[in-house]
């Protein structure tokens, strides 16, 4: 996690936004993060990694957290510099135990049609942590951490 945090647990200067479940809202956050990453000098592979992690986190928040409620809202915090990208996603749900999610890479689970979002978030981000009760996920991508 970033070395210092504000009262919300986000790094100082993080942009905090609340969005709806509308696709245009999810896309606008993804576009804004990608654009800010490019301006900060992150390569295309890093933008791909963070975009994918954001899409998966947003999808989890909408479907599993907020259970597709039309009036559901997601709080998103972002902080981006040349070395690090921070993303926090908080939904309005009861949370979940990430340890209880099946491993979709096991042979017996390969043909399960769901359950890969968390795997991809973990694979593409440098650090990821869920805060109890599990309705907040904080993710960090570090440029020099040997990923993407």
């Amino acid at each position: 996690m970033p070395p210092s945090r504000g009262p919300s647990g986000d790094p100082p200067g993080a942009k905090v936004r609340t969005i709806s479940h509308q696709r245009r809202d999810v896309e606008s956050i993804g576009d804004a993060v990608e654009e800010e990453m490019r301006l900060a000098g992150h390569p295309a592979a890093a933008c791909f990694a963070v975009r994918l992690a954001w899409e998966e986190a947003a999808s989890n928040a909408i479907h599993h957290g907020n259970r597709d409620r039309p009036d559901g809202r997601i709080e998103v915090a972002t902080a981006i510099d040349g070395a690090r990208v921070y993303l926090r996603v908080t939904d309005e749900g009861q949370g979940f135990d990430p340890a209880g999610v099946i491993d979709p890479t096991l042979d017996e689970n390969l043909e399960c049609a769901s359950g890969r979002g968390l795997l991809l978030m973990r694979a593409y981000m440098t650090r990821i942590e869920f805060e109890p009760p599990g309705n907040t996920v904080r993710m960090v991508y570090e440029a020099d951490a040997g990923r993407a």
Binding site: F48, R51, L52, E55, E56, S59, A113, S114, G115, R116, G117, L119, L120
Partner: peptide, 9 residues
């Protein structure tokens, strides 16, 4: 780009 939902499909 594609997501885990696309993989599921």
């Amino acid at each position: 780009h594609l997501s885990s939902a696309a993989l599921g499909a």
